[in-house]
Amino acid sequence: MLQKIESAGWPMAAGLAASRRQSGVSVLHPIDAHRIVVHLSPSTRTFCRETGYAALRGIGHIDLIPSGATGGFDAETPYESLEVLLSPAVLDRAAAETGHRGGAFKFEMRHMLRNERIVHLAQAVETELLSDSPGEILYADSIGTALAIQLMGMTTLEPAQAGRLSALQLKRVTTYIDGHLDHPLTLEVLSREAGVSSSHLRAWFKAATGLTVHRYVLRRRVERARFLLLHHNLRPSEVALEVGFAHQSHLSRWMRRELGCTPSSFRKRA
């Protein structure tokens, strides 16, 4: 059942609310506001409560959860996060005021994004709502509008120029890949993220990066595996699963191609 913010213990001001959480578990019940969750702790290994997929969240990682959505994750160690609630009306008003095509804006579920401006605005929301300033409502309203505009800029696609991906489209695809290395990544999924056809993504991505989508994903998986082998006490078979390889031999084959060594020899050398 969708909870009203007030009944859930979140007092709203200018369509905004903010709270810090310190926990090892994040449980997201459906509420009538969008959530912007900013991770504040160093690298924390988390497991999605719905899919079981693992992810490594770090300071500044952002999760966007639409109004009415559920979810959450379990963390291996306690972590701290800043959760900002944004009324859908604030986003709709900002969309109308900025001439967003189609009026109301669709707030999409996304995870492990990076955007320093959104982090600063979320912290400003928290600071302002905790202050005793008589002008806090007016200022909070301006922060809410700025946050909504930033979110629209982050999740709205620029039109692709003829024959190539825009900078924002390319960033959306590469950010999605980095945030979902432990998930199956297909051209269909990534082309939806870019807002182009699969055939166009295949050609335009290679033109932009010099790599096929498949080779880029494999290279990012190897780079993530290299980091985990250096900084975490995980077995190579565990690292393989963490970065999206089906088994350790698959990881070994690609590490040998990219780095010239297997996971075991790399760790010994390091």
Score class of each variant (00 low, 15 high):
A140W: 05
A240L: 01
G103H: 00
L157S: 10
L190P: 07
I59L: 07
H34A: 07
R226K: 14
R172C: 03
S7R: 15
V37R: 12
F266R: 00
I5Y: 14
G260P: 02
Q169I: 08
E108I: 13
L251C: 03
R114G: 14
W204H: 12
A33W: 08
E223I: 09
S43H: 05
A203H: 11
I177C: 02
H61N: 15
A208Y: 06
R110G: 10
V25D: 15
P88N: 00
P236H: 05
G60M: 00
S67Q: 12
L113N: 01
A203R: 15
V125P: 11
D182H: 11
T145W: 06
A8T: 04
A55M: 03
S131I: 09
H214E: 14
R114N: 14
G195C: 00
L165N: 01
T175W: 05
A122Y: 05
D141K: 09
K268Q: 14
E126F: 11
A270K: 03
K268T: 10
L56I: 10
L211D: 09
G71T: 08
A17L: 03
A160R: 01
H183P: 05
I177T: 03
A270G: 01
V125R: 09
G135M: 13
R202P: 03
P42D: 08
G71W: 03
E242Y: 05
T70Q: 15
R253Q: 12
I65W: 07
A18R: 07
I65P: 01
V196F: 01
L168V: 11
S81C: 11
L130V: 13
R35G: 09
G144A: 04
Q150V: 04
K106E: 08
L16H: 01
Q3I: 14
I31K: 14
R35K: 09
G144N: 02
R224E: 04
E97D: 12
H247T: 08
S252D: 04
R256W: 13
E126V: 06
H214V: 12
G163N: 00
V119H: 01
L211Q: 11
M154N: 08
R101H: 02
E188H: 11
L82K: 01
L151K: 07
S19E: 15
A55N: 10
L241T: 13
R172V: 02
A122E: 07
S249W: 09
G71K: 06
I5D: 14
L157G: 14
L85Q: 12
R220L: 04
L16M: 00
C48L: 06
K206P: 04
